[in-house]
């Protein structure tokens, strides 16, 4: 299944959209520093805020895409979620699982590679953005309300592992 991509630009504002949702380019420097910012704000829940915001924003995009393209099977929806991840330049995602949860692997990762390019390896996983992205895919794929899944990064390329791994659990 190939994700249908419709890139458009508003001729008045020059804002860009993908499948009807506004998008903008940034670089790994931006996401590395945003990730560092939430890590530094751990005492006020920084990592969870980033994770929650990503889940909420992506859920809306997935719901619209699934509805507009009549994607009804969880499997097709997961494949679309993986392809959105790559389209956004965030890496290569591989999902296995069912509505009770599952496992997600990243064989490449913008956040981890970006962090490593900027500061080198790190002692613990930092991919909070992808945790939210995965939770959004699972809840949208299985028609569950937002916050129905907890996603935990259990292995991370930023710590030197060859792949990143996430465990998804239904709440």
């Amino acid at each position: 299944m190939a994700l249908k991509l419709e890139f458009t630009m508003d001729n008045t504002t020059n804002r860009h959209s993908l499948n009807g949702h506004g998008v903008v380019m940034h670089s790994h420097h931006y996401l590395a520093l945003i990730t560092k910012l939430v890590e530094d704000l751990g005492d006020i829940g920084g990592p969870q805020i980033l994770c929650d915001v990503v889940e909420e924003s992506m859920r809306e995009i997935f719901d619209d895409y699934f509805r507009e393209n009549s994607l009804t099977s969880a499997q097709d929806r997961c494949r679309a979620g993986e392809e959105y991840f790559s389209t956004f330049g965030l890496g290569k995602m591989h999902i296995t699982g069912d509505e009770r949860g599952g496992e997600v692997r990243l064989s490449s990762s913008h956040v981890d590679e970006g962090w490593t390019r900027k500061w080198g390896a790190h002692g613990k996983p930092i991919n909070h953005l992808t945790c939210g992205f995965i939770s959004a895919i699972f809840s949208a794929a299985f028609n569950k309300p937002p916050k129905s899944y907890a996603t935990t990064e259990t292995a991370s390329m930023v710590t030197g592992e060859p792949e990143s791994t996430f465990v998804v659990t239904a709440l």
Binding site: V23, F88, G89, H110, R117
Partner: peptide, 11 residues
């Protein structure tokens, strides 16, 4: 650099 494309609503 590595470019990313993110929803403005998210940012």
């Amino acid at each position: 650099v590595l470019v990313n494309l993110l929803p403005v609503s998210l940012l």
